[in-house]
Design a protein around this nucleic acid. Sequence first.
DNA 1: TGATATTGCTCAGTATGCTGACTATCAGTA
DNA 2: TACTGATAGTCAGCATACTGAGCAATATCA
Lengths: 154, 154
Amino acid sequence: MKDNNDMPGHLARRFQQIAVAVFLAEVEEAGFDLTPVQYAALATIKANPSLDQVTLAGLIAYDRTTITGVIDRLVQKGLVERRASSRDRRARELEITGEGRRALRKVTPAVKSAQRILLRGLSAKEGEELMRLLRKAIAAGNDLSRAPLRDMPA
Amino acid sequence: MKDNNDMPGHLARRFQQIAVAVFLAEVEEAGFDLTPVQYAALATIKANPSLDQVTLAGLIAYDRTTITGVIDRLVQKGLVERRASSRDRRARELEITGEGRRALRKVTPAVKSAQRILLRGLSAKEGEELMRLLRKAIAAGNDLSRAPLRDMPA
DNA sequence: TGATATTGCTCAGTATGCTGACTATCAGTA
DNA sequence: TACTGATAGTCAGCATACTGAGCAATATCA
């Protein structure tokens, strides 16, 4: 435990640091200006029409206070619309715009490329194993962060 | 690739998110107010007397612009001293204080505990394998981020 | 129904992390 | 030595993430 490299927490930070750098580089090369967080939100909004912000946050494990700013920026870029819910006047319904759909479609190859680059030091089998172990560790720790992953409410 | 759980980048973010939450919770329970970043900096400053900021950044893979604020806060807490270097008037030499040493010693059990909790969903063998795969992927991607890990200069 | 608790969202404040720009200094070389 | 390039550090600006507080609206239950 002397070395940082023996600390899973340090390795987590480094891996995430590289993941973000690779994502941004690939997406920028494809001519887009989207962060990993914005991409995940946009994809999830597209897959779940009329989603409210809290449910969105749960689906991708963001803090609800973080989501506000992320949506602000997606709205400002014209990729998402935010409107009051008719059923619950506290809630906002989110909808992807046509431009949002186009951006999502066009940027997807860059996102996939980023995932490949992130695992480029590993064999296919090792990459699978890494993902399996991460999923398992994350599942066990899900409720330890303020922003746990949550299912769609019934 | 439909699911976020198939994206290593997403898993990286979640794992790091949980790692930080666990770290802060354990450290706070031990009665300290130190972030993961501050802890790593403090431990590295202790291990390398008269370190300058750029070398410190390289040893723990921080951006040099991030280090400035981290050191500011460590200095403000009285855990580190920052003084001008005599050899190079551009550089600042960093030194841990007595209080910094005490804090580091007392907080170490909490840090170790956090690492165990982070891997609590995995067997010992799986934990080792996860760390091995992370190290391998990180090594292959080291130069893809603006703040790569660097060795001590000779 | 009326009091209470909960929920959806926002905001202020703090701490990473990054880009890009700038100053001061140092190092190498013509 | 004067010029050029590289280096150490800081700063402004932007985007996550979090804590804690607050407001408005809804849900629950005595």
